[in-house]
Design a protein around this nucleic acid. Structure first.
Length: 104
DNA sequence: CTAGCCTTGAAC
DNA sequence: GTTCAAGGCTAG
């Protein structure tokens, strides 16, 4: 946790100490992030994908053992595991008051 | 179905 | 008035 103070008042709080990833890639697919989406930094693809999936109650099935490695190439092959990973990294459609900057 | 751009709303 | 993120729309 990093605290940046200015004039003795806390302005911003950084949480989540990622060690390998620089905060510029999706934790899901590894594409370039476009900003904060659903509680964390994701790319436009995952934003749209997650939206489509959750909002329309999409139902995917994994042909394998639900252990697919999700990267920029395989993410299209297994939407099920992609979605699993989205959930696993902490994406939430509504109310994801987690690692945002300062919102009520 | 995927993914980028555009639009809209809320917070600041 | 500006910025950020959610949502929508469309082309491939």
């Amino acid at each position: 946790v990093i605290l940046i103070q200015s004039n003795g008042i806390m302005e911003r709080v950084m949480e989540y100490t990622y060690d390998d990833d620089l905060e510029e890639l999706c934790p899901v697919c590894g594409d370039k992030v476009s900003g904060y989406h659903y509680g964390l930094l994701t790319c436009e693809s995952c934003k749209g994908f997650f939206k489509r999936t959750v909002q329309n109650n999409k139902r995917y099935t994994c042909a394998e053992n639900q252990e697919c490695k999700i990267d920029k190439t395989q993410r299209k092959r297994c939407p099920f595991c992609r979605f699993q990973k989205c959930l696993n990294v902490g994406m939430r459609l509504e109310d994801s008051n987690a690692g945002k900057h300062l919102l009520p």
